[in-house]
Amino acid sequence: MRRGIVQLVALGVVIAVLLTLVALLFKWLPSSASVEFNRIQDVYWFATAIAIGIFSLVSAVVIFSVWKWRVPLDDDADGPPIHGHTGLEIVWTAVPAVLVIAIGIVSAVVLAKNGEAGSTPPLQVNVIGQQFTWKFVYPGYGNKTSGELVLPIHRQTKFTMTSVDVIHSFWVPNFGQKMDAVPGIKTTIYVTPTRLGNYQVVCAELCGLGHATMRAKARVVTQGQFVSWVKGK
């Protein structure tokens, strides 16, 4: 049996290494362009480490058992009558509980940080969803209204959202943050862009026939470019 355990562990390690390669070699997440998404990605990697561990354990035991203890279909003996093991049962109740609580704590911390206004007042942008376009309003700049989202880099932005018809959902994949725009109420998120470039605003909530095409351009520019854009017509 000692040898069996060694084989099982080896199998588990092989599976875990393969999965780790899959997790690392492919680029599973879009490159982050915001402070908030950096934090979200940390939670993602934390959860991924735990997930790889658990999946390797379960699949290794399944494969190993079938490999070791498979019998021909006409075999008519029974296995050993093991009814349970209190110690083991306590372990596999307690360990997962601790792991998920750990994920919960990390998540709660990140959630709190991502929802906090910084010390300098954030740039306010009002987002209005309407079948099937986005409208961005800059109340700090004479209610300048635009169909394109332009943001200054490194400046925390507070988005306040609503909708004039059905529910939409504001999402820029590279920012990681997402929030529904709901008729009748106002919702908020914060984004602090960290990289210059062009991105896409995507509507993530099914809103009708044009849902798939409800997109807008987002641009992250320098502070100077932003000021001249926002003051222009």
Binding site: S65, V71, H85, L88
Partner: peptide, 29 residues
């Protein structure tokens, strides 16, 4: 979030108990 994550605990118990049932069984595939 906490209650959601906690559901993984009874779910995990079931998964682990099934694979423990396989352990040293006489497996008819």
């Amino acid at each position: 979030m906490i209650t959601t994550l906690l559901i993984a605990v009874p779910t995990g118990i079931k998964i682990f108990s099934w694979i423990a049932t396989l352990w040293r069984g006489r497996i008819h595939l």
